[in-house]
Write a protein that binds this DNA or RNA. Structure first.
Lengths: 203, 203
DNA sequence: CCTACCGATCGGTAGG
DNA sequence: CCTACCGATCGGTAGG
């Protein structure tokens, strides 16, 4: 009946797949999406290489699955938590505060997966690069929408340049990730929150 | 006489070493310092792997030489160009403008080497990570000195938090690199200059 | 600086 | 899901 996994049900196979992807996000946040290797993954999970690869076909498909999983985790821990705040400035503030909290405590061990992946793949081409760039664009689009709405609702000054403000907000988060991961400076979240207050007011 | 290179003078050997390092910086800015391999390097330079490795001993020593070379290039294209500006606010502005110009046109094909290396190695340990983090610290220290001096000279407001301002300046540069390399958005330098004007006044 | 080579590991496949 | 295997490439060494 079950050609690919004679002793495992479909549900079990799905769980195994999830285990692989979860561990992959952690490894990739520390060593990069290229540093993630099938052999290492198999060793850490007590599986054979073929067993790992069987769920994805190729390494590139595994990488794409990892990007998807990281996006899902990000949506859960950032976007979802800000969901109850009303659209506009309040939602924008909630999103940014959730973002800071995520980088501070909720992100994988090597820091924000997307920050790392963006830097790793920005000089390449192909589906993985496109997926990473697409996620970044979606996220910035979300921010921009709430900036524009905040302006329309009179919560931000009339002349506010939405692209400019999103650029500044992204800079705060990149600097925060940099401060935490490379410099290991615990003051970084404080600076980030201060910058956010200056840009969009109190959280 | 010359055990290591029977047909090359010391000067020629040094030139070969420089060729290797220069090409390595380009490759590393695109593919990362781990993606840089001895075999590929040898192929592109028309040398044998042993010929390449002979100049450095190990890959890690090659990576450290690449970090040094990138720091030198950065010093030439950013720090050196701002040298004539008087210490304090004017020097700070000159440094930041040179930095933007460097990211815009002078950086290696894959963007700022240090931004990429910082992200690649922030989750690891060892001499390469330490070298990268050390360079970032030196550079931020340089910025901080001129911020403090600007405050002392009355060019920046008295209550200015130097660490906070340096954090914001770093954020602008990270966002600029991100905008240029991942999003390939040519408006990024404009946004960066606008942010700088808000932080430290006209360049 | 080269050739020739080492063991280890890479991504991936065949076959069950 | 496994074992067994493929060719290619990895960093590095011996010897000249």
């Amino acid at each position: 009946m079950d050609v690919m996994s004679p002793r495992k049900s479909v549900a079990e196979a799905r769980l195994t797949r999830q285990r692989i992807v979860d561990r992959s996000v952690e490894i990739a946040s520390l060593e990069g999406l290229e540093g993630l290797t099938i052999g290492r993954l198999a060793g850490e999970l007590g599986m054979s290489k073929a067993g790992v690869l069987g769920h994805f076909g190729t390494k590139e498909h595994l990488q794409l699955a990892v990007v998807d999983a990281a996006a899902e985790a990000f949506a859960e821990q950032v976007v979802e938590r800000a969901r109850t705040a009303p659209p506009g400035l309040l939602r924008l503030r909630a999103l940014c505060e959730a973002w800071v909290a995520y980088l501070e405590t909720g992100a994988p061990p090597g820091g924000c997966f997307f920050t790392a992946a963006a830097s790793e793949f920005d000089g390449r081409s192909g589906p993985v690069r496109d997926a990473v760039a697409g996620m970044a664009s979606l996220w910035q689009r979300d921010l921009r929408i709430h900036v524009r709405r905040a302006v329309a609702q009179g919560e931000l000054a009339d002349g506010t340049d939405a692209d400019q403000l999103v650029f500044d907000l992204v800079g705060v988060m990149l600097a925060l990730n940099h401060g935490l991961q490379l410099q290991r400076d615990r003051r970084a979240p404080m600076w980030a929150r201060h910058s956010l207050r200056r840009l969009i007011g109190p959280a």
